[in-house]
């Protein structure tokens, strides 16, 4: 705005306003646009190498040292590396999905998301997809470094099943993250505390660093509500020689349960989001606390 006579903003009459897509095109555009900051933007911040790779690797190394000291079966080292890689997804779901809408609210983005003609489900899917892609990169780096460092031997019985389990586990996990995000919509700083509270216990009950078969059946069954529990168990069964003997239940059943969890969490997220959005509009809790 540096000239006396400003350039013409738009020559077009009202009928010539920018073309705007609707329906599924708008849904898809929204998913891609919301995934963009996570897929592209976050890669620009090199600090992820430290926080998202080196810190989880520290936990992996500690467990490997313990297992080697007590003479645990060799495949346990591989279990730990795989579990360490999967912690990145749990962290991402907790901090960048569940409590994300609280941060969006404080930044002023949530109001803009709600006010736009897009679907909030598309925003959540975009967050999930972006988070999943960015975290897969981190998990891959942890897996490669851990495998090379400890010379992990993989004996994959079915690549197709391994891929299917991974996709199902991720879909169910991020579906759960979307459901939590909807539930946390009304929360303020409590969202941060709840995420903090859920972090460590899940490392334990989901068997990130050991097979959940070591738990009594009902504890293992109860912890299966977290998709990573069964996902990790099935992936270990499919990727290591001793996996099937140390597995919790058969891979077929685990795939079936994961498929059910996908449907349950995504459906719950859809309905909860609609309900919570209405409630937040009624109670005036959609905008940042300072305004």
């Amino acid at each position: 705005m540096n000239s006396e006579q400003l350039p013409v903003i738009s020559q077009s009459p009202i009928a010539g306003r920018p073309h705007k897509n609707t329906g599924w095109r708008l849904f898809l555009q929204t998913v891609i646009a919301r995934a963009y900051p996570r897929v592209v933007g976050q890669q620009g911040e090199k600090s992820w190498m430290f926080f998202d790779v080196l810190l989880p690797l520290g936990g992996v190394i500690a467990y490997v040292c313990v297992y080697k000291a007590i003479g645990a079966p060799e495949d346990y080292v591989g279990f730990v590396v795989m579990g360490g890689a999967m912690t990145a997804f749990w962290m991402n779901v907790l901090w960048s999905m569940s409590s994300q809408l609280y941060w969006e609210k404080e930044q002023g983005n949530l109001a803009l998301y709600i006010m736009a003609p897009n679907s909030m489900m598309a925003i959540l899917l975009g967050m999930a997809l972006g988070g999943m892609v960015a975290t897969t990169l981190r998990a891959l780096v942890i897996t490669i470094i851990g495998s090379l460092m400890f010379q992990v031997q993989y004996v994959v019985s079915s690549y197709l099943q391994l891929f299917a389990v991974f996709i199902l586990a991720m879909t169910a996990l991020y579906g759960m993250g979307m459901m939590f995000a909807s539930m946390f919509l009304l929360l303020s700083r409590e969202a941060w505390h709840l995420s903090n509270l859920a972090q460590e216990p899940v490392y334990l009950v989901s068997g990130f660093y050991f097979p959940i078969r070591n738990f009594p059946f009902w504890i293992a069954a109860a912890s299966s509500i977290i998709p990573l529990t069964l996902g990790l168990d099935a992936m270990r069964q499919l990727a290591f020689a001793s996996g099937p003997t140390l597995g919790f239940i058969s891979v077929g059943i685990e795939i079936g349960v994961l498929a059910v969890l996908c449907v349950v969490f995504l459906t719950a997220a859809h309905f909860l989001l609609a309900y919570m959005e209405k409630l937040a509009i009624r109670e005036g809790r959609l905008t940042e606390s300072r305004r």
């Binding site: 920018p18 897509n21 609707t22 555009q29 929204t30 646009a33 736009a116 003609p117 925003i123």
Partner: peptide, 8 residues
């Protein structure tokens, strides 16, 4: 990003 939420 914000323009995409309006389908442009």
């Amino acid at each position: 990003m914000f323009s995409q939420f309006y389908g442009i």
